[in-house]
Structure formats: C-alpha cells, structure tokens
Design a protein around this nucleic acid. Structure first.
Lengths: 149, 149
DNA sequence: CTATCTGCAAATCTTTTGCAACGGA
DNA sequence: TCCGTTGCAAAAGATTTGCAGATAG
C-alpha cells in the first residue's frame, strides 16, 4: 500500500519535473514493467489491459518511449523479436538460449573483465545490460544436439 | 574467375547433397552476403538486384532461411532493427555503438574468459558471435555525452 | 517429366503517425 | 483555460504465405 502511494508520487514528481503529466495509463504501464521484469510492448499492453481494457497499445508504445527518455525504464534486445523493457535499475546480463528461448539473468560483474579489455584494447565503453548473450543452456545441451536460432 | 567457378560448384554440391537445387538466385544471394560482410535482408536484396533486378525480396528471405538451415550463412542481432546475415565462417564479436550505430568487429577470443566463466558458473554455452555487444564507441564518448539507443 | 523454386499478390504482424477529443494542472 | 495526452484509424515497414507458372535435374 505504502509502496503504491510512494511509487505513485515518485512517478508524478519525475514527470512534473519535466513538464509532463501524470496519468493513470502511465502508472499502469510502469506497474506492468515492474511486475513483468522484462517484457515486450505487447506483453506489457496485455498486462495493463487486465486492469484497464480500454488502454490502447499505441499509448503503451508512446509511454515506454517517453519513460525510456526520462530514464525510468530501459530496453534490452534479447535476440529475436521485439525488444523487452524493464526498470532502469534492473541491470543484469541476459543469457538467452538459442534452442528453447529461456532467459536467465546473471550479475553484470561477470562482464567486468571483458569491459575492461574492450575499454583498453578497443576504446569501446561496454553497456553490459543492453543486449543479451546468446548460447545454449544446460538443459538443451543435454537433449537436442543442435538447433538454429 | 577461378574463384567464381569454384564457389559455384561448392554451393551446387552443398545443395545437391541435400536434394536441393542450384539456381542463379541462390548464387547471387550467397555472393551478396559475402560481398557485404553482414547485412540485412533488404540490403542483400538490393545488392542482388544490382545484378538481377527481377529477383524478389521474398526469394531473398527464403534463400537466407534455407542457407542458414544448411549452415552456409548465419544471422546476428546487432541490436536495433533487422538481423544481419553473414557467412557462417565469418565469426567475430560485433560491437555496436548506441549513439552512432557504428559496428566494429573484434576477435571472438576476447570472449574466451567470459565463455569459460559462463560454462562453469552458469552451465551456459556461449555463442559469442550471435549477438552484438552494445556500448559507446570512442568517437561518440568524446563528443555527445549521452544518447538513448 | 516432376518436384523444387520463383515471382507476385495478398495476408500478417509490429510499430508509427495524424488528428480530433479528452483531461490534468 | 491551455497544452499535453489519449484513442482510433490509417499508414508504414518488415516478414510470411498461397498459388500458379517457370525450371533444374
């Protein structure tokens, strides 16, 4: 309860700071992003529509876009299909299995050494959580021998 | 010249081994993939159409799909937009800059340590060349301070 | 000759845009 | 009241599918 109230005013404040308006749709989209962890616009829309069926997917797209611009959410490319959105703070490396599509999360510090090497050797500042690493998970390796993405 | 002949028969043989047919379109698509390094289906189609304007993009999609299934090409998700196709052998890690979109390639052995850690710690078999790493390149870091993907 | 391929058109799917009406501050 | 926001419909872009005719083997 308290959480909801606090979240709500946080969102309102963040929006107002930039001359943007607080609306029920925006709260619902943010709630959905938080509830789902990382999800496609379509999944987020479905979640929002459980509470408010009239909300249009166009609004979801626009709201995700806006919230990304103001730093509340971020998107990640898990490989195939649509990008997925999650909370900005929710930073981790995604491991996606080619074969079964399972998504695992792992701390970003796994990438620290790589990031350092890229920085020194290639002058490239890695953003570890923006794209997923791709491969084959244990379960699939044990069963199916091969599979295309 | 010899190259062309040799490539041609290689493709033909590979196709015939599986009961598939050699066509001019297939040769052109494979040539385009090789010429472009890594490119979207649309870019590949444009390249093919420089030689044979009548080739339909549908054929390009179907051919890329087929060639991926038989292991001649592979696709990589560079982050935004369409996947890009390249030769199967052409394995490297892609670094994509959020800001300017530049794609750099780097040897996959940069990922060896990470791959080893993932294997032991997470039971995940990394495929280093299937997705791109995302971040900010040197040039952009020096100029624009921030930018969303 | 016959099964595979191709081109075309249309269907799908996802995302974006234009616009009039709505509603937050 | 005023301007940001929304919903709707339509546009746009990417990929897939059905089908009849073309063609490799």
């Amino acid at each position: 309860m308290l959480d909801t109230v606090r979240e709500s005013s946080t969102l309102r404040r963040t929006l107002h700071q930039r001359g943007l308006r607080m609306t029920p749709q925006r709260q619902l989209v943010l709630d959905a992003v938080r509830a789902l962890g990382h999800a496609t616009p379509e999944q987020i829309c479905a979640q929002v529509q459980r509470a408010a069926p009239a909300v249009n997917i166009t609004t979801v797209y626009r709201t995700l876009d806006l919230m990304e611009r103001i730093g509340l959410v971020r998107h990640t490319h898990l490989g195939h299909g649509a990008p997925t959105y999650s909370e900005q703070e929710h930073r981790h490396v995604h491991l996606v299995c080619h074969s079964c599509g399972a998504v695992t999360e792992t701390p970003t510090d796994l990438m620290d050494d790589l990031a350092e090497r890229l920085r020194t050797e290639t002058d490239f500042e890695l953003d570890p959580s923006h794209v997923a690493l791709s491969g084959i998970c244990r379960a699939c390796r044990d069963t199916a021998p091969d599979e295309l993405t």
